[in-house]
Amino acid sequence: MTDNRMAIRQVELEVLRYNPETDQEPKLQKFTVPCVNEWCVLDALNYLKDNLDPTLAYRWSCHMQVCGSCGMMINGEPKLACKAMLRDYSGVIRVEPLSHFPIERDLVAVADDFMAKLKRVKPYLIPGEKRTLADGEYKQTPAQLERYKKYAMCINCMLCYAACPEYGLTPKFIGPGAISLAHRYNQDSRDGGRDERQEEIATSEGVWECTFVGACSDVCPKHVDPASALQQVKVASTVDWYLEHFMSWVKK
């Protein structure tokens, strides 16, 4: 049996280049990179930077789909460069920074907008019941864990923002990632911060900007399914609205 796993393949990369200090506008630059077929696009970029052009700027850290740094558009689709395997591509591979974000330089997108939105939705545990160390741990059943576990897998990679047409059209939209993380804590049995988060996400620039296109769930590398989180937030916010307006004596 011939082992061709280490076979070298010449991969043509078309990489978006942009230096805001010197360039009027972004342009694509072609590189031919000798790659092992089992490499991912990130490996090809690393080879390119180490051997062909050290000025190329891009973010990466873990190389194993947990840090969420290397999100970029690969042939027009939002992907983690470490999860996009070269064997799945033929011909020229076009690599660009994430859509819908300003470009910092080359493949680096400016993440400030997402970071500000993330902060607004308070994606951390706000304990519902104050406990001292002596009271021991917060206990949770497997069923209670299951309610939010999927949404806790988010790695803040912003692929969902690059995929969401609503975010592209209306940048003030808080967006799939941040709302899913808000939902993750709202669903946590130990949490008591839902009212505070609703002030941000039950608004017109919050969940109600979403029209359930579902592209966020298609591209999520961690199978978080943000679209389902947003639908659940809509149902819960609708129930809230009716309770607040017609049955204000009922506790939410």
Partner: peptide
């Protein structure tokens, strides 16, 4: 930001 009144429309939409 105030909470949205969208649930009036979305409630009938979802149902």
């Amino acid at each position: 930001m105030a909470k949205s009144n969208k649930p009036i429309i979305w409630g009938t939409f979802a149902a």
